[in-house]
Design a protein around this nucleic acid. Sequence first.
DNA 1: AATTTTTGTGCAATCGATTGTACTAAAAAT
DNA 2: ATTTTTAGTACAATCGATTGCACAAAAATT
Lengths: 326, 326
Amino acid sequence: MSASTISRALAKHPRISVKTCELVQKTAAVMNYRPNHLASNLRRGKGKLIGVIIPRINRHFFSHAIAGMEAITNPAGYNLMICQTNEDFESEQQSLQTLINNRVDGIIVSVASGTRTTKHFKAAIDEEIPLLFFDRVMEELDTDRVVNDNFAGAYAVTKHLIEQGFHKIMHLAGPRHINVYKHRYTGYLKAMEEADLEVSPEMVIDDCLTRDKGEQFAEKLCDSGNLPDAIFSASDYSALGVLLVLKKRGINVPSDIGLAGFANEPFTEFLEPSITTLEQFGEDMGQSVARMLIDRLESKEEKKFTSSVSFKPQLIIRESTIKNKI
Amino acid sequence: MSASTISRALAKHPRISVKTCELVQKTAAVMNYRPNHLASNLRRGKGKLIGVIIPRINRHFFSHAIAGMEAITNPAGYNLMICQTNEDFESEQQSLQTLINNRVDGIIVSVASGTRTTKHFKAAIDEEIPLLFFDRVMEELDTDRVVNDNFAGAYAVTKHLIEQGFHKIMHLAGPRHINVYKHRYTGYLKAMEEADLEVSPEMVIDDCLTRDKGEQFAEKLCDSGNLPDAIFSASDYSALGVLLVLKKRGINVPSDIGLAGFANEPFTEFLEPSITTLEQFGEDMGQSVARMLIDRLESKEEKKFTSSVSFKPQLIIRESTIKNKI
DNA sequence: AATTTTTGTGCAATCGATTGTACTAAAAAT
DNA sequence: ATTTTTAGTACAATCGATTGCACAAAAATT
C-alpha cells in the first residue's frame, strides 16, 4: 500500500474506503506509528509554533497566563516559544525578530513598558503572521486582543474607597503610555469626579510601581506631614512598599490611611493589614488569547474582523480599606 | 551558484573558499535570507525542542526555573515544550508520551508527587531521548540531574532552631517517596540526633504540605494543648496555615512556638511574624539543567557519564525563629 | 611537460508527509 | 454489451536544507 493512501486514510480523506481506513488505522496502531511532525510541518510551511512575548515569566499574573495558554495550545498540537523582555524595548524588538525567523504561526505580545513605538510590530504584520495582544496592548494597532478592563477595576476600587469614607485619595500611577496604567488612572479619575472629589496634580504620583518606589514615596509623604485619606496604587508592589513604611512610622492602615493595590499578588492576602486589590484571572485570560489565536490560525477564512475580549477584574476587599469594622 | 555551495558557505565548511563564503554571507544578508528551521530539522531528524514536565508552572519555584531554562535554551535555538502534571501520575505519563511523539531532543522532568514507579520513563530511555531530572528526581534512575541539597537545608534550619533554644521540634513532612521530602526529613532527623534530642513518631506529621493541611494540623495541635517548642515544615504553605491558626488562637510566634518553612515563597517575607525559610534559587537551577541538557545534546560523544549538580539552599532567618530579640 | 595533489563546486539523493494528476477496477447507466 | 461514472489507489513532485560522491580547475610535485 502506498504512502499516499496511508496518508489519506489517516486523514480520513473521503476518497478512501472505510475498510481501508480502518485497516490502516489499526496497522498504524499496531506498529506504533507516529507521524513525523517535522516533515508535515515542512510540507505545510508551518511549524505549529506560537510565539509569546511578555515582560517577565515569573510574575504571578504572567506565569498564570502562560499556564492558561499551555492548557489550550498543548492539546491542540502547538508549542509555545516564550520570550522575556524584562520591560526593555530593544529586547522586545529582538524577540520579535527571533520569533519571525523561527517562522512561528502566530505571536502573542504583552508590551514592554520600555516600548513607545509600534514600528517593530509591522515586521510581523508584513510577514502576515497573526499578532495578538494580551493585557498590555498597543491601542493604535487594530489587532485581536485580550485585555483587562482596568478602567472598570480602578473605578470599582476607587468607588469602594469613597464609600468607605475616604475622600482625599491619592493614586500611584504607572507609565501613561501603557493602556493598563492609563486606564487605571482614568478609572480612578472617573470615580473621583463622579463623587465630586477634586484631584489635584500632586495627588497622582507617576512612575510608582515597585516596592522601592512605593517606599520612597511613603517616606516623602510622611515627612511632608500632609497625609491623604487613602492611597490607590496601580501596583500591589508599590502598595506593599507604602504599607511597610507606614507601619514603620506608626501610621495605621486603614484607620489613618486606606490602601488598595492592583493584581492580587499572593502576598497581599497575608500582609497585616491584608490589602484590598483586584484579581485579574491570568489563567483564564491566557486560555482566552490562546483560543483566539488558534481559531484564527485554523479558520481558512481571510481576516475579516478583529476580536477583542475584555475581562472584568474582581474587587477583593480586605482589611486595608475597611475603616469601620462592624 | 548551487544550493549545496551556499549551504556549505553558510556553515563555513572548510572546502569552501573564504571569498565565496563572504560573498554568500553578504548576499544572504542583502536578500534577507532566513534559513528554514523546519527543513533543516527534518533533515537532521531533530526538532530543537526540549520537553519540560513539571507539577505546576505557576509556582514560585517552578516559574523561576522555567525562566532560567528559557534564558539558556532560547539563545541556543531550542524551544521549550512545557507540560504540567498537577502532581498527577496519569498526567505525567501522558505528557511523557506527548513529548516522545513530538520527537523532542531531550526531556527535563520534575516528578509528580503521584508518581511511584519509573516504568513510564523507560519509554524515553528506550527511544534514546536524554532524560534529566530536576529538583524532584527518581533516585533509582541513573540520569543527569540538578537538585537541591534538601538534606543540608533541613539540617541547617533545624540546627538554627536548636541553637535558638527550641528543643522539642516537630516536623511537617511530605511524601517520603519523593527525594525532596525524604531529605528534608532526614536532614531534620540528623540535626536532632546530633543535638541528642529525641524525635518520637508523633513529632513527625506526614502529608502536611498545603495551607489547609497546615491549618487542620494546627487546630488539632492547639486542641491537644500539648504544644512543641517549634515546628519545621517542609513547605511554606503548611507553615502559613499553621501560623494563621496560631495567631487566631493567640499563640505567639516565635515566643511561644518557633516556626520555619521551606522554599522562600514570596509571602513568607510579609507575614507577621515573617517566616524563616530556605531559598532555592530556582532560576539558577533552571539554567543549570538547561545547560546540562544542551551540553549532552551537542556533544557527539556517547554518554559515558552522568552529571549531577546539587544546589545548597540558603537559610533565610526571619522573625519566626528569633526567640530573643537583642 | 606530465602527473599527482589539493581545492572548490555541483549533482542528486535524502529526511517524511502531503497532494494534484492519472490510472484501474468496479458499479451504474444506457 | 457497451459506455459512462465513480470509487479507490498509486505515481511523482514538493517543501528547503544537507551531504556523500564525483568532477573540474588550480596548484604542487616529479
